[in-house]
């Protein structure tokens, strides 16, 4: 049975995101201030929806990965995206780089990884993941500007929803629904965005969605049982939309459909594989070959 808190969180997220974007201010107010509705709509609606669903973030905010995701990463990326909209376009990138650099350490803060990893291993993981997030961010920013922007955000919403389902099959039942709530925030924002709106505010909304996707996948892999291959494929899925730039599809409707279908294929595939993996019967437990043991060995155990 679907928990009421989840239904409430989803509904509230949709209403809040739609209300913030649709009621962004008078048409004669400066464009840049109106644009703030997109990052605030996605960031705030997701935060409130997650709070209603899971009761998180919980005090103290730095205690668990979910708390740090909601109380640190989401406000940080929302603030940076909002700031980027108020200034020159390049101004957002140093902030985005900062988010990419701190995202993994923030999520893994205080965990056993900090003790288990050597400085070299930690640098590789933190640096590698920051690099992946940054590359995906640049790609997504370009996609919003070169492909139908609302469709790109809708596609990202679909990937987030798929990541949420995959996470649930990977033994993180309460973390997965956050992906669906984030998907609702993104999809609602995209659907209520008028066609006349330039791509800038949608890049800001997409940035929050991307960081959310990244955080869910990192949390799923490092704190639950999400396999690295599933996480990597889901994170790389938005890149698929670039294929559509090659044949130069002229008809917008066809392009929109192609973006969504292209992204849906790997997402549905991974969700199916994760479901199948969760349903697989367990291999029998290994029986220790007792041929080499004697009662004397047993009596000496623990000494």
């Amino acid at each position: 049975m679907i928990p009421l808190s989840f239904v409430g969180g989803v509904l509230l997220t949709a209403v809040l995101a739609a209300a913030i974007v649709a009621g962004r201010g008078h048409s004669n107010s400066p464009f840049r201030f109106q644009f703030l509705a997109w990052p605030i709509g996605v960031g705030l609606a997701f935060f409130v929806g997650a709070l209603v669903y899971s009761g998180r973030p919980r005090w103290p905010f730095l205690k668990e990965n979910e708390d740090r995701f909601l109380a640190v990463l989401i406000p940080l990326v929302t603030w940076i995206e909002a700031l980027g909209l108020l200034s020159k376009p390049w101004f957002a990138w140093p902030g985005r780089l900062l988010v990419a650099l701190v995202a993994t350490p923030v999520l893994l803060f205080g965990s056993t990884y900090f003790e288990a990893w050597t400085p070299a291993q930690a640098s590789l993981w933190f640096g590698g993941l920051a690099g992946c997030l940054m590359l995906a961010w640049v790609s997504l920013d370009r996609q919003v500007r070169h492909l139908p922007p609302r469709t790109v955000v809708l596609g990202l919403a679909g990937v987030n929803a798929g990541a949420g389902l995959t996470l649930m099959f990977a033994g993180y039942a309460t973390g997965g629904p956050l992906g669906i709530i984030l998907a609702v925030a993104l999809a609602t924002t995209a659907l209520v965005t008028p066609r006349s709106i330039p791509p800038e505010p949608l890049t800001a909304a997409a940035g929050i969605g991307l960081v959310g996707l990244f955080a869910l996948l990192v949390s799923g892999h490092f704190f639950a049982a999400l396999s690295l291959d599933h996480a990597a494929i889901l994170f790389a899925t938005p890149l698929l939309a670039w294929i559509l730039v090659l044949p130069r599809i002229r008809r917008t409707a066809l392009l929109r459909l192609a973006v969504l279908v292209l992204e849906a294929i790997p997402v549905l595939g991974i969700v199916g594989l994760a479901w199948k993996r969760s349903e697989e019967p367990e291999p029998p437990r290994q029986v220790v070959d007792d041929g080499g043991y004697s009662p004397a060995d047993y009596q000496n155990f623990g000494k």
Partner: peptide
């Protein structure tokens, strides 16, 4: 005794063993 259940118990849904070993 059930590996899938143990995985779930180790996740942030319950013990969050990577955070609280």
């Amino acid at each position: 005794g059930i590996a899938a259940r143990d995985k779930h118990l180790k996740s942030p849904d319950f013990f969050n063993v990577k955070q609280f070993p």
